[in-house]
Design a protein around this nucleic acid. Structure first.
Lengths: 187, 187
DNA sequence: TTCGTTTGTTCACATTTGTGAATGGATGCA
DNA sequence: TGCATCCATTCACAAATGTGAACAAACGAA
């Protein structure tokens, strides 16, 4: 749990006692490659910190998995809209590789935040992470051509090819797998 | 202020006294067409409700105004990242037409939320609005072709052409003005 | 009003991306 | 081991979008 502890230490000023209370509320879970953290239609009731491994977020459209996000070590996973508004999720979240998370369900979070009000900042962090990421993706999709978007993704996630099948990368970039192959061949 | 009052009534359960306290903290402001609510580099310190008129959000890149969002009656305007993290804004927010807003600065919001804690939900609403919009725009940019994105925009904002110059619409859709003209000609 | 500026349209041609099919490698399972 | 499936690559051709230019229409300021 080194990643999770150092995340807490780096981002918040919790004292040792608070840190212990927080850690006690989270539960460790391992998910095999291909296992779901959440499936379309489910009500998302939890928030989780990715300790190890990776996940992708997708929606099934016309039989295709349209990828809209990835999350790796140090990221949070959850479906914000479903969690906050108590709605069925429009997305599925699936493990790309064998993964390890620390998760917290919504009622535990409510109890925890009575004891340690500062933990509400975790929810804020989550919202900010998602908002920032989706705004940036929209910006790149609107202003860059496919090759430049691919370069941007490589710059921000240099190891993406070791962890994500290429046709998921293409989907995230808004292009077809053949187009991504072509782009890679030219470089 | 009908829009603002009915927004409060429709979304929250404030009693008349709370409603009055809230209204007292907001200030009315009118902005002429072309006036800025916020400019790139400024620190955003306020949140505002659009009572009348409209705004667009853009970033200057290579001398071009890249439009990433619109806001009309009933929407909130603010630069979330700048407001929450106390950072200089990466975006400018400019009035498309003569507009009327009710605005609240961050310190007034802090005071107000001591008296009426429920107003914090306004900040949450703001985050949700932005997150939902940018996620949806990214999704459409990645999965639809330009003509379909244009149709989607028309469906969600039927009056957009009465209020927004066409080359801003093109920019928002991630295409060139000429391409939007072509798309419109075909239909 | 008149003139200059801004915005929208059209065109021909270039570039980018999609499409469907064929191929070969890798992977996993019987 | 052999076979089937999945994934990445390549190709030729089609479709979508960009580019630069010319022009027209709308708008605003004097």
């Amino acid at each position: 749990m080194e990643n999770f502890q150092s995340f807490l230490a780096a981002n918040f000023e919790f004292n040792p006692e608070e840190t212990q209370q927080i850690l006690n509320c989270f539960e460790k879970k391992t998910l095999k490659k291909g296992a779901y953290f959440l499936t379309e239609g489910q009500y998302c009731k939890t928030v989780a910190f990715v300790e190890k491994g990776g996940f992708f977020f997708y929606q099934l459209m016309d039989g295709e998995e349209k990828v809209c996000d990835f999350a790796f070590e140090g990221d949070w996973i959850s479906q914000y809209k479903s969690l906050i508004n108590n709605l069925p999720s429009e997305l599925s979240i699936k493990a790309l590789v064998d993964s390890e998370i620390y998760w917290l369900d919504a009622t535990a979070m409510d109890k925890l935040s009575d004891k340690v009000p500062k933990v509400l900042i975790i929810r804020t962090k989550l919202a900010e992470q998602y908002f920032t990421q989706s705004a940036e993706r929209a910006d790149k999709l609107a202003t860059l051509k496919a090759e430049e978007r691919y370069q941007w993704l490589l710059d921000s996630h240099p190891k993406i090819h070791q962890r994500v099948p290429q046709y998921y990368i293409a989907s995230y970039l808004g292009i077809k797998p053949q187009s991504l192959s072509r782009i890679r061949a030219v470089k």
